[in-house]
């Protein structure tokens, strides 16, 4: 029973972390709070749904294609909204407001195109069998969700920590100006980051859609709040910390449902967020980070 809850916590937490990772990439590298990330998350889930049900693609093909679709959407938001604001040297509030607008647009669009009712992925997507490890047995679906999130996160962290591209991205995160003076194509990497972050957001949407067996035009907003909470819990900007924040949030929710009741789930996790902010403004796992122009 407890083992099962731990498995649930890790599974949910790893998807939160995946969502938060995309969000924190944009924040760390572009220096922008992108409030359309929840919208991209939601449309990613719908894209996969269409590819699975209308085009009849297998899951392993629908997932990357839907991620690319979500990525292109993120790229469009960067090229059409964020880039314009960057060029103008607009203050921080402007991209926040502009991306709220984009999120509202995406929600309405989804309502118009797909209707407001909750949709589901086909039930036969994953076998009903369980993977058993000693005394613990994990449903294949949950194992796949966790596995995919972890693979994507580890890949991102590896790129950021160990590759030349990652070095360049970390340079931009500290100072776009200094990075440009080193010959790093900053604008191009802003586009790339927007694409990758959105693709991760889309993947999270698909996995949450599978996990809760529900897709709706309104699934983005609560997820956005959770993503922000995860990042604050984990410590802003540091990718690893955002991952820990996501896992922590997932665990809090699962155990809130288990030991209290599902009504208190969000109250507990966001209540905890308040306490963390009072006690450790830099987050549970974070060191205070700064960014210069």
């Amino acid at each position: 029973m407890l083992e099962q809850q731990i498995v649930n916590a890790i599974s949910l937490g790893s998807v939160y972390a995946l969502f938060a990772l995309g969000f924190t990439l944009i924040f760390g590298i572009l220096g922008v709070i992108n409030l359309s990330h929840g919208g991209i998350f939601m449309l990613g889930a719908y894209a996969a749904l269409l590819l699975l049900t209308r085009v009849n693609l297998p899951f392993w093909a629908a997932l990357p294609l839907a991620m690319i679709g979500a990525g292109l959407l993120g790229l469009a938001i960067d090229a059409l909204i964020l880039k314009v604001l960057r060029k103008r040297g607009a203050p921080h509030l402007m991209p926040m407001i502009a991306t709220i607008g984009a999120a509202i647009l995406m929600t309405s669009l989804a309502q118009g195109l797909f209707g407001s009712e909750t949709r589901r992925f086909p039930i036969d997507l994953f076998d009903q069998e369980n993977l058993t490890f000693g005394s613990i047995s994990i449903p294949l679906l949950q194992a796949s969700i966790t596995g995919l999130s972890v693979v994507l996160m580890v890949l991102m962290i590896w790129i950021l920590r160990r590759t030349r591209l990652g070095q360049a991205l970390r340079a931009i995160a500290e100072s776009p100006r200094a990075a440009a003076l080193l010959g790093i194509p900053v604008e191009r990497l802003f586009h790339l980051t927007s694409f990758v972050a959105a693709a991760l957001g889309g993947a999270a949407g698909i996995l949450i859609g599978l996990s809760f067996d529900a897709i709706s035009p309104f699934m983005g907003q609560p997820m956005l709040h959770k993503g922000i909470a995860a990042i604050i819990l984990g410590g802003l900007e540091a990718v690893r910390a955002a991952v820990l924040g996501g896992l922590f949030l997932g665990a809090t929710e699962v155990f809130a449902v288990t030991f209290l009741s599902s009504e208190y789930r969000d109250a507990l996790s966001f209540g905890l967020l308040f306490l963390v902010l009072l006690w450790r403004p830099q987050g549970l796992f974070g060191a205070a980070a700064t960014r210069s122009a």
Partner: peptide, 10 residues
């Protein structure tokens, strides 16, 4: 650049 634009976090 002015003020030694080194990347302090790297």
């Amino acid at each position: 650049a002015e003020g030694r634009a080194i990347l302090k976090t790297l």
